[in-house]
Computed example of a mutant assay.
Amino acid sequence: MEEVESYKHILTLLENKASVKQQIFKTTSAVFNQFKQVLNEICLDMQADFAGKSQLVEISYSDRGDFEVQLKFSGDVLILSMHSNVFCFPPEHEVNKLKYVQEDPYRQYCGIIHIHNFLADSLKYNRGSDVGNLIGRIFINKEEHFFVDGQSQLGFLFNSFHKGKLQKEQIRKILELAIIYCMDFDLLTPPFENVRFISLEEKQYMGSTSGYPTSKQLGYKFKAELENKVN
């Protein structure tokens, strides 16, 4: 009898949790395609509006498949990537305290779209040790409700998880803020003592990849991670 009940529980989990996760994956994929479309539109706008100002600034869009897209603008690259898995939040997270989620616990399950900033030269010269910076994460549930965890204005403008579906104008705003953040955050020279000594192996690597391992150094935790503020 106990074995029968266990098997019934497996079927229930497949019917509920597993099917919800598949639904969220499809929903997140559809939203990611919207991000791709809007990012391409931004690229075309930037190319058209900047065409007569400088021939030195390269602006290009690159679709890298189902899970990644890139926008290159001058020395920066904005990379959007969709995670293939579905996540839920720790019990103490503010998301689980929302009436919206308490009415249906499956609403807390989300797909994730990451927004990273890399230096264009990191990709151009294949500098494998260079580090990119995570600017933001977009969480999307089965109903296309969303919130954003991120840097600067991305950390507080889009945190009303219960209010409604992600709209195209919000996608454009998220992407524009991410691009602005990339350009506002400059590459800083490291302290002399930090780069004073290098090994021969490192020097040989530098010779083959055109330069020192480089990144825009950040020491932060996202606002939402520090405060768990989602409403």
Results as ranks from 00 to 15, higher is better:
Asn194Phe: 09
Lys163Ala: 09
Gln167Thr: 10
Arg196Ile: 06
Gln204Asn: 11
Ile174Phe: 10
Ile179His: 05
Lys168Glu: 10
Asp186Lys: 15
Gln170Ser: 06
Ala178His: 10
Leu166Arg: 02
Tyr205Ala: 11
Arg172Leu: 04
Leu166Ser: 04
Val195Arg: 14
Gln204Leu: 11
Glu169Cys: 02
Gln170Arg: 07
Leu157Phe: 10
Ile180Phe: 13
Leu188Gly: 09
Asn194Trp: 12
Phe197Lys: 14
Glu201Leu: 13
Gly164His: 02
Ile171Ala: 03
Leu200Val: 05
Lys168Arg: 15
Phe197Glu: 12
Leu200Gly: 01
Lys165Trp: 00
Ile198Lys: 13
Glu176His: 13
Phe192Arg: 12
Lys163Asp: 13
Lys168Asn: 07
Glu176Ser: 13
Arg196Leu: 11
Ile179Gly: 03
Asn194Lys: 14
Lys168Leu: 09
Ile180Asp: 15
Lys165Ala: 04
Gln170Ala: 10
Gly164Tyr: 05
Lys168Phe: 02
Gly164Pro: 06
Leu157Pro: 05
Phe192Gln: 09
Asn194Thr: 14
Thr189Gly: 05
Ile198Asn: 13
Pro190Ser: 05
Ser199Arg: 10
His162Phe: 06
Phe158Lys: 03
Gln170Trp: 00
Tyr205Asp: 08
Glu202Pro: 00
Glu169Lys: 02
Phe161Ser: 05
Thr189Arg: 09
Gly155Ile: 02
Asn159Met: 06
Met183Ile: 11
Lys173Trp: 06
Met183Gly: 09
Ala178Arg: 01
Lys173Leu: 14
Thr189Pro: 10
Leu188Tyr: 00
Glu202Arg: 12
Tyr181Ala: 15
Glu176Tyr: 11
Leu187Asn: 11
Leu157Glu: 14
Glu201Cys: 05
Phe185Thr: 13
His162Cys: 06
Leu177Arg: 12
Leu157Gly: 02
Ile180His: 12
Lys173Tyr: 07
His162Asp: 07
Leu188Glu: 14
Lys163Asn: 09
Gly155Asp: 07
Gln204Thr: 02
Asp186Val: 11
Arg172Val: 08
Asn194Ile: 01
Lys168Ala: 08
Pro190Phe: 08
Phe156Ala: 04
Lys163His: 10
Gln204Tyr: 01
Tyr205Val: 00
Phe161Leu: 03
Arg172Ala: 10
Ser160Trp: 00
Leu187Gln: 11
Cys182Val: 08
Val195Glu: 13
Arg172Lys: 14
Gln167Glu: 15
Thr189Asp: 08
Pro191Val: 02
Ser199Ala: 08
Cys182Gly: 04
Ser199Asp: 00
Glu176Ile: 13
Val195Lys: 15
Leu187Phe: 07
Lys168Trp: 00
Phe185Asn: 11
Gln170Met: 10
Glu193Lys: 15
Glu202Asn: 08
Tyr205Thr: 02
Asp186Thr: 07
Asn159Ser: 12
Leu187His: 06
Gln167Asp: 08
Glu201Arg: 07
Ile174Gly: 05
Ile180Ala: 14
Met183Tyr: 13
Pro191Met: 02
Asn159Ile: 06
Lys163Gly: 01
Gln204Lys: 07
Val195Met: 15
Tyr181Ile: 09
Gln170His: 01
Ile198Ala: 13
Arg196Asn: 07
Pro190Ala: 13
Gly155Cys: 02
Leu157His: 11
